[in-house]
């Protein structure tokens, strides 16, 4: 039972990290970024390549290479996030809502196929020298059995979320982002570079997704070009469940969906896990159409 809870929380923490990206972009633009799942996938591949490169450069200490790989993945995905915003969203700022949505789906297909054609159409194994020691180190505390990798996932998710909260609440950038989310025209009249800030929101979200991608890559051991699709869908559901546009909501939604899936698998069977998580989503939306924490519209970045 405890093992199931830990598994579910680890899975949920990943959903939460990716959901944050959806919710930030929605908070600022009022639009869904349908290429967000690809940022997650690019993060997986970027960290795998970074680890490969560091390994062939002679660096083997996991304590050093893993943080570097995560930072490389976050930076690369942030770059792709900025590119995505420029190409798929900025050009269509004044257009009908459906136009940027469609261009983002197009961007998602382009990125998937780019990785499929340039890297591999099958799977790629994540460097096991890094993930295996972490996954094989297990601690038993009473009935609780937890691996170092799960501690890392839960811990770094927590750190990243605190970091995001700090950026949004305490820095000039965060204040500006919240201002744009509240009233874009007013913010621009006050002299804020709105386009610039929107790019920042995409970059932060993409970087978080890339960090999540690295965790999942280590957790599953293999990576694929189409990994962003299902996970993106789940994370999107998590963002909606928590109340899209609301940051604590995205975290809560992610954890709930992760837990719902694993508890269902353990109680009823894996056949029902998607059914239960999406039934939960429908139920919540019926009772609270704005999501669990969705009523605080003023605070929506």
């Amino acid at each position: 039972m405890l093992e199931t809870l830990v598994n579910g929380l680890s899975r949920g923490a990943i959903y939460a990290l990716v959901a944050l990206g959806y919710t930030m972009v929605y908070g600022i633009l009022g639009m869904i970024n349908f290429a967000h799942g690809e940022m997650f996938m690019l993060g997986m591949f970027a960290s795998a390549f970074a680890l490969g490169a560091l390994g062939s450069a002679g660096l083997v200490s996991v304590g050093l290479t893993l943080p570097i790989a995560i930072l490389v993945a976050m930076a690369l995905s942030a770059g792709f996030g900025a590119m995505n915003e420029r190409m798929a969203y900025r050009k269509l700022r004044g257009a009908h809502l459906l136009a940027p949505l469609t261009s983002a789906i197009g961007m998602s297909i382009v990125l998937q196929n780019f990785v499929m054609l340039s890297v591999t159409k099958g799977k790629k194994d994540f460097p096991q020298s890094v993930s295996a020691p972490l996954a094989d180190t297990r601690w038993s505390i009473g009935p609780l059995n937890i691996s170092a990798l799960q501690v890392l996932i839960l811990g770094s998710t927590f750190v990243l979320m605190i970091g995001l909260w700090f950026v949004i609440q305490r820095t000039r950038l965060g204040i500006a982002l919240r201002a744009v989310a509240q009233d874009r025209t007013m913010a621009s009249l006050c002299g804020m570079k709105v386009d610039h800030l929107i790019t920042w929101a995409f970059m932060i979200g993409s970087a978080l997704a890339a960090a999540a991608g690295t965790m999942v890559a280590m957790y599953q051991g293999v990576i694929r070009f189409d990994a962003g699709y299902t996970l993106g869908l789940k994370a999107f559901a998590a963002a909606v469940l928590g109340g899209i546009g609301n940051i604590p909501g995205a975290v809560l939604g992610g954890l709930l969906i992760g837990l719902a899936e694993d508890l269902t698998t353990s109680a009823v069977g894996a056949d029902w896990k998607h059914t239960s998580s999406f039934a939960l989503l429908i139920l919540v939306l019926l009772l609270r159409p704005r999501g669990l924490l969705g009523e605080r519209v003023a605070d929506k970045v």
């Binding site: 093992e3 199931t4 598994n7 579910g8 680890s10 899975r11 999942v216 957790y219 599953q220 051991g221 293999v222 694929r224 189409d226 990994a227 699709y229 299902t230 899936e261 694993d262 698998t265 353990s266 069977g269 894996a270 056949d271 896990k273 998607h274």
Partner: peptide
């Protein structure tokens, strides 16, 4: 003791493994 479908894109089997051990 367990017979279940996980779907063809799932790569995290930990929940099923915990269940089958139990």
């Amino acid at each position: 003791v367990v017979f279940e479908g996980v779907g063809s894109d799932e790569l995290d089997f930990r929940a099923s493994i915990a269940a089958l051990k139990a």
